[in-house]
Simulated assay, not measured.
Amino acid sequence: MEINFTHNKERFYITLPHPPTAEGISAAAKIRGELKNKAKWGILTDADIASAKGIEVEDSAVIVRAGTLFQEVAQTYLRRWKGDKNSKGNYVNILNYHWMPHLALMPIHTITHDDIQYLIVAREFNTAKTLNNCLIPLRGVFETAIKSKLITENPMAGIENEKVQIGIPDPFSRVEMNALLDWLDINLEGKDQFYHWYFELAFWCGCRPSEMIALRWSDIDWFNGTMRISKSRVRGVEKGVTKTHTVREVYLNDRSTRALKEIQKLKMSNDYVMICPETNEPFYGEETARNRLVDAMQACGIRHRPAYNARHTYATMLLMDGVNPVFVADQLGHSLQMLMKRYAKWMHGDKNKIEMAKLNTN
């Protein structure tokens, strides 16, 4: 937890060894008050600041600076962060949980490559992806130290990401999709009918859930039959960009157009297209809608897949029907290379089955 105050026109940032709990916040407020009072009366010493940071000082009058601590550089890294708030929050959690307990009070220049390698082994990360994600803010802290000329060599050099097995999309078949939509149509009543049309649109437009819940009626071009996808909404925070930072026009078809018109008839909002029936507010995330599709999968006996796979279903239906891959890539917001990498299995339609059938003719 960080406190800060101004003394003699200088801003002091001090990271305290206290957790962000009610007790920790109370302790931090008390420490900050004491430091401010000492600064006001001109009796603030380096020893006072060191003590607040949790550093034991034998001589309370004099402190020999041992160098800038890891926790101080971490706070500088976070203050300079220019990315989205959601990522910053994740990095704060990663630093607090995985790295601060071991590195916080170590001078940044004393941390070695071997120290970090040992910590990585000791943490026993469950998956390679988790490890790779946790290394991002750690690298950021040491890169900040390099830029601030606190260290000359980066101890993260040579610590590479683990290889992550990349899975292939797992779409619903058309039969499964229609069974799910039929179940939602039959079993949801009143305002909950919204979720039937939500997934009708999801299956037939291919948008990411974060893009759908950020969609506004002003983004719908009824005359030209398109939706302008330029925003996303993650954990209740509106982001003025999509995941790929690319604006695109998604063409509507008969089923996606009908879904939008049915949602419009519900008159839930003149602003956002997607309004949560339970709260009458824009969606915080896609969990509520996702749970409805989970209910439908269980009721229909359909193998569980993430609701996100409605997007994969749209992509594979287009490809299986022989739609131009360039158009499909534009609709999804992918590059053609990414589309081919992810959906190569479906790009030949039923030709794969025809080729496999040849094995049975000999």
Rank of each mutant, 00 (worst) to 15 (best):
C207S: 09
K129F: 10
N187V: 03
G158N: 12
M100L: 13
S210V: 02
E160Q: 13
E143H: 05
C207T: 07
I159P: 01
S173E: 15
G167D: 11
E211A: 06
R235F: 04
L181P: 11
Y118G: 06
G236P: 03
T152F: 10
L150V: 11
E211R: 00
T112H: 03
L105P: 02
L138R: 00
Y198C: 09
N96Y: 13
H109L: 05
W183Q: 06
I166T: 15
E211Q: 07
V175W: 06
I186G: 02
D185A: 14
L105C: 10
T112K: 06
A157Q: 11
A157I: 10
T110P: 05
S232V: 01
N178Y: 08
F203S: 07
E153Y: 10
S173V: 11
E124Y: 08
L150F: 05
L184P: 05
T127Q: 10
L135E: 01
Y198Q: 05
A128Q: 04
P101W: 08
N132P: 01
L138G: 01
W222H: 09
I120S: 02
I166Y: 08
R123V: 13
I120Q: 03
L103D: 03
G190V: 13
G140E: 00
E200G: 09
E162V: 05
A145W: 04
L119I: 11
I146Y: 00
P171W: 05
I136R: 09
I159A: 04
Y195W: 15
I220H: 09
P155V: 07
L188K: 09
